[in-house]
Design a protein around this nucleic acid. Structure first.
Lengths: 345, 345
DNA sequence: TTGTAGGCGTTATCAA
DNA sequence: TTGATAACGCCTACAA
């Protein structure tokens, strides 16, 4: 910067003004400085600026696993939105480790972060104190409930309810559910499971524990295993609500491996509308959670907090809670709604 | 830091020494300082350290698209390896834009980067000057060839050759190829296509342009489209080499939509061994490119360059060129090798 | 509209 | 083994 100033015959401060688009700089001076900058290939030193301003322009996106399409897509959208707001994104997969999540919030790297977007998986309601950190924090998804933190939620209960209801409308009466986390009460699994149960109740179907297949993780292999377990037990069913698309994909695979047809013998509905879901055979009917909105909203709230503004132009600065609405995507893994069923609802 | 020093009754420098594990610090002093650090909840300021040392501890991973499982997996592995080497990773998807790739290498953010791992897609051999940047750069994949940059390559030609040969060994004689980029000569598409042609030649099969289906991008939908094009044209074939797994998945879908069987009527082999590939129906036979090795090697080379060491303990400091070897993963989308064919090879 | 002085929190140098 | 002091490059205040 000093060199630039010398070459342009002005002071360092003037160079700074030009670089920061300060408006009261004469055109002549500005041109001189810009030429010098160009000639010397000067770029501002981000660290020095950071040291002075206290902002790094970097945020962390803390997620369970980048290899899950849901999170890959979310990351992609968050990075994109970050670009729009001039924020760089460090993606931190915690790989299903409680320790990893705590490290991500409290590790030494937070001193280089302007904020964190956190999708908790292992931390639960008891860990609210872990969320008390020095930089702005926005929660996405579900699992931890506290009124003190900005939170962009997805419609888990409503989405699963809709999925289950739709199966009913297509004529299914013995509907299994895949991927439940027994004992959990605030995570995506618990909420989606709750939606399933609420739908059964509304449809007047009895809840049958035999139709419930737990799965700790939600990879495709877990869907294969859970489905095989049900089939091995000879459980009678004509529909499956998988708590995410990968489970659904695995289940579809397992069913077809037995020579059964989807949706002929068993219908399947997933959750997430991952990019793959449309290319499975048969293409998967699923619930789209509105990830674009999650990415956009969470990023904007964080940016507002970083800048010290009230988030989303709310009149007061209290923690935001927004629920992004989901939608049903009908494809080929379910039968068409029956007339009779339609009337029933 | 000043507060810590005051509380521990030592100088700032001593605190610095403790923080940086400088070895000549008495145990008593060290304990005092560590207590003070703990009591005050002090964390080092990354920006200040960066300003002083010139290192940020951040690198960028520049890739075309995070939503492609291949790159999601690669990113995951690179981030993991980065953690091991204390380097944070900013993932920068360029979204198939030449401008995006140039920006990633020359944008203002490089002043906050210690290095870049770059998987080029749009930049070609003519753009070698674009690779001349101020921070260490490691190329991965293919596409740009220059001896002046460290490069971790994958076995594109050999892998595709192996795939094609394997189809031949299972009895296929009319083998189509999906995802070719006409006019390209150094990208993954060109190299894999070259492997396909080399295999045909070795097997004594004639090359038939009718069996070549181009596809600019390699998403599943492109596989569906490319395959449908071939099928619509009534092209006779008994095997398909898809230049990646997503194309293969799309092709498999398209074939089965027509009521044809995989591999009964048409065998399919993919490339990349993405996590999904094993859960398709039928499970996909594919080529595993050894991504773990790519991630590990590229990260280590970069780290060595950042630290000013010769990469990978090579005696001299010349640019590294390493090729990671690939392997064949046999699943259910291909028939078993025939005895006769086996003899032929 | 432009210039000068000071300090952000570290680490490096050198002296004690 | 420890301490004082000077940078690192930039931005804010204030003065000119």
């Amino acid at each position: 910067m000093r060199e630039v100033a010398a070459r342009a015959g002005v002071s360092i401060k003037t160079v700074s003004n030009v670089v920061n688009h300060y408006q009261f700089v004469s055109d002549a001076t500005r041109d001189k400085v810009e030429d010098a900058i160009h000639d010397l290939g000067y770029v501002v030193n981000a660290s020095a600026r950071t040291l002075r301003t206290g902002h790094t322009g970097i945020i962390a996106l803390v997620i369970p696993d980048l290899q899950i399409p849901y999170f890959a897509q979310l990351s992609s959208l968050v990075i994109e939105e970050g670009k729009r707001l001039s924020l760089h994104v460090i993606v931190e997969p915690t790989l299903y480790s409680r320790e990893g999540e705590i490290q991500a919030l409290h590790g030494s790297q937070i001193s280089m972060l302007d904020g964190i977007i956190f999708s908790p998986l292992e931390l639960s309601g008891d860990d609210v104190d872990q969320l008390d950190i020095d930089v702005p924090l926005v929660l996405i998804g579900e699992r931890i409930f506290t009124d003190n933190v900005d939170h962009i939620a997805t419609e888990n209960v409503e989405g699963a309810k809709r999925a289950t209801t739709y199966l009913f409308q297509t004529g299914c009466r013995r509907i299994a559910v895949l991927g439940v986390h027994p004992g959990e009460d605030v995570g995506s699994a618990a909420l989606r499971f709750r939606g399933y149960r609420e739908a059964l109740e509304e449809m007047g179907l009895a809840f049958d524990p035999k139709l419930v297949a737990p799965a700790d993780r939600w990879h495709r292999i877990d869907g294969v295993n859970a489905m095989n377990l049900l089939l091995d037990q000879g459980v009678e069913m004509d529909g499956v609500v998988a708590l995410n698309d990968m489970l659904a994909s695995g289940a579809s695979h397992a069913i077809q491996m037995r020579g059964l047809a989807v949706p002929g013998d068993i219908s399947i509905i997933g959750f997430d509308n991952s990019e793959d879901s449309q290319y499975l055979s048969p293409a998967l009917t699923t619930i789209a959670p509105g990830l674009e909105a999650v990415a956009r909203l969470s990023m904007r709230v964080l940016k507002d907090r970083i800048d010290g503004n009230h988030p989303l132009d709310e009149p007061d600065g209290r923690p935001i809670f927004r629920k992004v609405s989901s939608s049903l995507v009908v494809r080929a893994s379910t039968k068409p709604p029956t007339h009779a069923a339609g009337q029933l609802c």
